[in-house]
Amino acid sequence: MTLGSPNELEVVAAEDGLTGAGLEPEDQRGPAQIKGRSLWALAWRRLRRDKPAMAGGVVIILLILLAALADPLASLYGQDYAAQHNSGAEAAKLLDPLTQMPIGAFSGVSGRFWLGITPIGGQDILTNLLFGARTSLVIAGLATALSLVLGVALGLIAGFYRGWIDTVLSRIMDVLLSFPVLLFSIALITVTGFISSAAMVRYAVIVFVLGFFSWPYIGRIVRGQVLSLREKEFVEAARSLGAGNVHIMFREILPSLVGPILVYTTLAIPSNMLGEAGLSFLGIGVIPPTPSWGQMLSDAGGYVQIDPWYLFLPGLAIFISVLAFNLFGDGLRDALDPRGSR
């Protein structure tokens, strides 16, 4: 979805003879279908010229591929992320018997362990990073999807129906936005931990707290847009043709909101990735042995004086992934902004 569809739209627009200079849409709120297409075509053209954004896009695709192919890649490489190499005959060669720290430079980099091993546990760092990418992307993706579904649906309803529904939903959004989210999440995760310590339950709770408390952000954006869109001629036209409220909301108004929703998505994913890593860092994230970058950083923090390499690897992984999403999201926002001159 990220890069494919604007391209398609550009082809469609080109077939319609809509590309080329002088087709800047004068009015962002232009309701015509044709103008909508050309906006996408222009956006894609702007985006393609934005080198940092494209670099971000490439990194995102690579990251998704790596996370999706983690299993075959790990078996090709011949290591299991959960396997501990701290006992038996091999242990003495890998970990210092006295300090339990990896033997050799850079956390014990070798032909067998390309990025070294962890202290004490003696786990392979590369596969942990690989599967950590999966944890990070899946949780961030699901949490973003949750906030999108809630935010878009409730934002649409609030903006479309107005009146008391809008008042109630807007108040709820205000309350959620002024909520001590992190502390409340900590409390919620603790309590659910009493009820069930299953890894899947924790996974779901993390997705819930990250997604649920962020829906008002997109909800407000959608509500604001719908408030003005619902007064447009195309809505009136649809209504005069006998379209019902649900049809108008989801088939007429929603397509006009794809731009802001897309931008929000690409910027919400990195913030949810940081959120997951943060919870895992605090020890209330995913439950080991599920690998997580935040957990690795938390573990590495204790050995930073002796084994700094172990800290840099997951740190770099988070930095590169989050930066890639931010670059792409920024580029997308600029590209979709009709006032943009680029």
Binding site: L274, G278, L297, G301, P314, G315, I318, F319, N326
Partner: peptide
């Protein structure tokens, strides 16, 4: 800076 977590 936005992309760097405090725990790093």
């Amino acid at each position: 800076a936005v992309s760097l977590p405090i725990f790093f």
